[in-house]
Every structure is written in C-alpha cells, then in structure tokens.
C-alpha cells in the first residue's frame, strides 16, 4: 500500500508541476493567440503550400493542415537550424495550430519525417522588423 501511496503522491506532484507550467505559459501564449495574425499552411506529398511566408514580428498563429495521405510535421527552424517550435503528429486531414512569437529574421519550415525535407517539404519564413 505504501507503494501505491507513494506513486499517487508522485503523480500528484507531477500534476501540480504540469498545471504550474501550463499556467505560466498561459499568461503569454493565451493572450497573444487571440490577437495574432493567422497563416494557413497546407502540407502534402511533398511540399508546403505556400512555400514562402512573409509576416511581421510578434505572435503569429500557423494553422497547419495535412492535405496529403501520409503523416507530416511542421517544424520552424531558426538560422542556426535550432527548433523554434513545431507541430508533430499531423495525420491526414488533421489541422493543428501553432502560435509562436517571432523576432525579425529569416527562418525555414520543414517536415522532419524521414526523407520528406529532401523531397521538397521545405519553406522560407521571413519575419520583418
């Protein structure tokens, strides 16, 4: 029984931690999502439409839809190929939102599923100051 109690208290602790994390994120991401401009991106085999996006600095919401027939991803990379943010598990038909706060600069967006980027799933994102 002690084991169950300990597991339960550990579970409680992780819940609190996760809710805390969610709450911290909520103050910024929540408010920005309501005012952020929306960019719709369609992913299919093997391209993003559009392949070039131009937005102003600040929060932007990407509405990424998988219009293809296999799983895709949408990953925004900075100039050093560091992951800015991403949407994974985009199965056919699914639309998932991604709100990011972007600083001016040039970014790329890619699909990191095996071979997809090399086959052409790559776009350029320009953020103006």
């Amino acid at each position: 029984m002690a084991v169950v109690r300990q597991a339960a208290s550990a579970a409680g602790l992780i819940t609190l931690l996760a809710i805390g994390l969610a709450a911290c994120g909520g103050s910024t991401a929540g408010s920005s999502a309501s005012t952020a401009p929306v960019v719709r991106i369609s992913a299919s085999e093997y391209a993003f439409d559009p392949a070039t996006v131009d937005v102003g600095a600040g929060p932007v919401t990407f509405e990424v839809t998988n219009a293809g027939t296999v799983e895709h991803e949408f990953e925004i990379l900075d100039a050093d190929d560091g992951v800015v943010d991403e949407v994974e598990g985009l199965v056919p038909g699914l639309t998932r939102d991604l709100t990011v706060d972007l600083e001016p600069g040039t970014y790329t967006y890619v699909c990191r599923i095996a071979g997809h980027e090399a086959a052409g799933m790559k776009g350029t994102l320009t953020v103006d100051g």
Partner: peptide, 24 residues
C-alpha cells in the same frame, strides 16, 4: 495513475494554453 495523469494534464493544457511550447 499514468493514464489518469496524462488525461488530466492533457485536458488542462488544451483548456488553458492549447498546447505546450516545444521547449516544455
């Protein structure tokens, strides 16, 4: 406990921030 925790945290995340930032 793991399934329950995942459901609770998942619902809370979706209801508040919508999704977790990639870093988190």
């Amino acid at each position: 406990a793991a399934v329950g925790l995942s459901v609770v945290v998942g619902v809370v995340v979706v209801a508040t921030v919508g999704r977790l930032p990639v870093v988190v």
